[in-house]
Amino acid sequence: MKFAVISFPGSNCDYDMYYAIKDALQEEVEMISCDETSLDGFDAALIPGGFSYGDYLRSGAIAKFANIIPALIEFANANKPVLGVCNGFQILTEIGLLPGALQHNKSMSFISQIEPLTVVNNETLFTNLYKKGQHINIPIAHGEGNYYCDDAQLAELKSNNQIVFTYDNNPNGSCADIAGITNQAGNVLGMMPHPERAVETILGSEEGLTLFQSILKSFKGELNRVN
């Protein structure tokens, strides 16, 4: 399986994501610049965390205009897996692949800590190896992770099972404790916690690796089904 990590100027978790795939998942991965215009040949696209273009405006607001974005939208519409973590999640909401927006944390300060989460939906291509209701510990590190959507949207997220991860002790004020959601089709996941920082025991947790293994499993399952 071949992964693309899309690096924007100011992305700073791009290599963390790259090594998570290369060393921990041990699959093929390539770092590509957001100046590229194609995702041809890739089976999954990963948008890493960081501060794209410095995030001096609303997070992700400038990244929205990068060359790669039309290709990314096309990739997502072709039902291929797209994962956005932290700044990647913010970018996915900016470009409309995911609903809602990420506001400043309720405390108005940056929060970096290991965060207990619950896997609410284990029937996605990103979470099929977790158990439903499983508690996992994944680090968070963000200043703008306070997920917001209006009531109608929230009702829709709930009824479509789009809420994938929730916080056990909501750290940032997110509505409905949301830590990660998918699009309606379930092939685009945005989440504030950093699974790529929890892929080796020496880093304190391997519980993020399961997410990448899930992507691989569903890719292989899909291949088998097609063949």
């Binding site: 963390d16 998570a20 970096s112 800590q113 680090p139 920082r197 020496i202 880093l203």
Partner: peptide, 14 residues
């Protein structure tokens, strides 16, 4: 104070 610092970026922090 420490929780305001990203102490795990680069994924090497033990």
């Amino acid at each position: 104070v420490f929780r305001q610092y990203d102490s795990r970026v680069q994924a090497n922090t033990v």
